[in-house]
Amino acid sequence: MYKTLLIGFVFNFFFFQASFAQKAADSLILKLHLKFGKDDLELGKKYVSTKKDTLQIDVFKFYISNIEIQYSDKKVYNPTNSYHLIDIENSNSLRIPIGYKNNLAIKNVFFNIGIDSTASVSGALEGDLDPTKGMYWAWQSGYINMKIEGKSSSCKTRKNEFQFHIGGYMKPSYAIRKVQLEAKNQEIDVSIDVSEFFSAIKLSKINSIMIPGKEAMELADYSIKMFKTE
């Protein structure tokens, strides 16, 4: 009898292993491509913005949350607990597994740039929301939705540095932004073109925004323009 149990157990083990592996291959993946114009974005590389600012990016991190996939039958698939920290220095973060694949055509993809107010008032959270990730403010609670830091000769600041920490969870400075993208094919490839952000600002004038408020709200609006489906 124990023998049968043991054989059953071993069989189950391999069976489940195989079925889960199958599932992983079938799952939908949201792929992110970080760009500056037509080029792939690289840290420390010099780029020129449409505002004629020569600049380099040293930090680029942001949150994507509440991903929704809308299929051709108008039904929406909404994976639970979807908070993802995207970091140019962590290539794994550029592939977000959605977990569920439908045979229907994907029509639209929705997601938020940043963290909603509910999560922002829920204390110490885990995973990508753990405050050790360097995306949490201290003196005033709340997540930094997007961090862009770098250098530009246009900035008359210490070491020519610019820092943008965009965030804020309280109205009227609620900086979360919803992005709606039309799916171009069955794979969701989203490009995030940082040059769009820098074509909206002149670095000699705006180079350090690190608190919630009116300026952060404007920068959050500009950040939406970076996202496009490929």
Binding site: S120, V121, S122, G123, A124, Y136, A138, W139, Q140, S141
Partner: peptide, 16 residues
């Protein structure tokens, strides 16, 4: 009142 939850309060003195 800048900190909204007891859990995240220690972040302020630790990083100050």
């Amino acid at each position: 009142g800048g900190v909204n939850h007891l859990d995240v309060q220690p972040i302020a003195p630790i990083t100050s």
